[in-house]
């Protein structure tokens, strides 16, 4: 596999995040994980807990950037935002588990995020129950539907390219996509 180009400016990274560019997202993920792992391990957590907290924070960051709730000016404010969400989430876990151990917050570095960039840190997006239902339903779809919907909505590939890959025409691909959406809706509903 070719080495991915380094993204050093805030703007291309924001575009990469908004377009679900796999390389950009992966770079962001891989670069920031060690800091969060260290934070969690130093504060009574395990590697698995670090992974969970980090992934939740990553999804929240991604959603907030997509919805323009967080408009970062530089890459370092993206890193800082991610760290802050993960830190808050880990604090919540510690509080909810009734940890007696005092967390020395001064040992945990903070990152400056200006008010104008941050429209209020919101990490609750994924607590939306309806969204959660759809997410769970997506993983219960058959592979064919999951793959088609993923190509269309996550990879954002054009319909004609997807049709070519599936060796069917564009109209049939559209019909198939609609049927998959219906199925997804049905599964999400039935689980309630």
């Amino acid at each position: 596999m070719q080495e991915k180009p380094t993204i050093s400016m805030g703007q291309p990274l924001i575009t990469a995040i908004k377009q679900n560019d796999s390389l950009g997202l992966k770079q962001l993920y891989v670069t920031n994980y060690p800091k969060i792992e260290l934070l969690v391990l130093k504060n009574s957590g395990t590697k698995d807990q670090a992974k969970d907290v980090y992934q939740e924070a990553f999804l929240a960051l991604w959603q907030n950037i997509k919805q323009d709730k967080f408009i970062p000016k530089t890459e370092s404010s993206i890193n800082g935002y991610l760290y802050t969400i993960a830190k808050n989430k880990w604090m919540d876990v510690l509080r909810s588990q009734g940890f007696k151990k005092t967390i020395v917050t001064s040992q945990i570095p903070n990152y400056e995020i200006s008010e104008e960039e941050n429209n209020g840190i919101d990490d609750d997006i994924l607590k939306n129950q309806r969204l959660q239902d759809v997410m769970q339903a997506f993983n219960k779809l058959g592979e064919a539907c999951r793959s088609l919907l993923r190509m269309f909505y996550f990879e954002k590939r054009p319909m004609n390219i997807i049709a070519e890959e599936l060796s069917i025409d564009s109209a049939s691909t559209r019909n198939k996509k609609y049927r998959c959406m219906q199925k997804l809706k049905q599964i999400a509903l039935n689980e309630n």
Partner: peptide, 14 residues
Amino acid sequence: TIIAGIESQALKNE
């Protein structure tokens, strides 16, 4: 919501 759910879960899997 459906579109956001697909995107979110696809990213989560990734």
